[in-house]
Amino acid sequence: MISLHSRIARHVTPEPAVSVRALSRIHGRGEQRVLALDGIDLEVRQGELLCLLGASGCGKSTLLHLIAGLDRPTCGELRVCGGQPAVMFQDSALFPWLTVAENVAFPMEMHGVAAPDRKRRVRELLELVHLEGFADHRPHQLSGGMRQRTALARALAQDARVLLMDEPFGALDAMLRDRLHDELERVWSRTGLTIVFVTHNPREAARLADRVVVLSSRPGRIADEIDVAIERPRRIDSPEVSQLAARLTDRLKEIIRASARNPAEDA
């Protein structure tokens, strides 16, 4: 197993972690066909934290599901480096019949990690997300934020090189979300993971991303790509983050107005 620290070395590898070429996805059949994604070209660099930003229903989750292998593209090419990516959803989707430790151990069991290694690694991961004392709790005994931290530990336990996050903090209150942003940034900088983070919240994108990819709605297309050079660790209320968030908000509004002028372009 690759330890947490040795992976930082991969940061600089030039090969993209995820590459997407001319990817399209049509939902439904016959009359109800909707072009959800249209000709997406995207490269996610190794170790990058990329945010997919878009209004609800713009196909950002569809794109994430395609990268996760949970759905097949209608056409186009998709390559993910290092096998099955780990995925985190808005709902923690922990298994309610397992304890926190058993949940975190689950992906390792699936990958045949030996029991003593599993135990040690579960301890490390629970420490990483500050849940040491909760190994034997069950998901329903945890708060929403603790459940998402358990889900993060479980995703990290998979030892994948790419972590896909589908609005993972969307259901949490603002205070808790700030805290989890800090934790995610810390975990990401320690592990050298590549993260694709889907959100509809411009502030969240500005807080987290190395690069923000803005998607337009119906059909989902890449409308804009913005590199973010704000120094880390960032604060959600810093002037740079606020300024960028305002810019992203304006850009999103423009896109929504434009797509309202050209109503749904069906395939």
């Binding site: 996760a68 949970l70 959803f89 989707a93 992906p107 998979q158």
Partner: peptide, 18 residues
Amino acid sequence: VPPLLERVGRTMGARGFT
């Protein structure tokens, strides 16, 4: 069974009868 649980299981490497 919520489809999400099955989806999560699949992304974590559980397949088929497992």
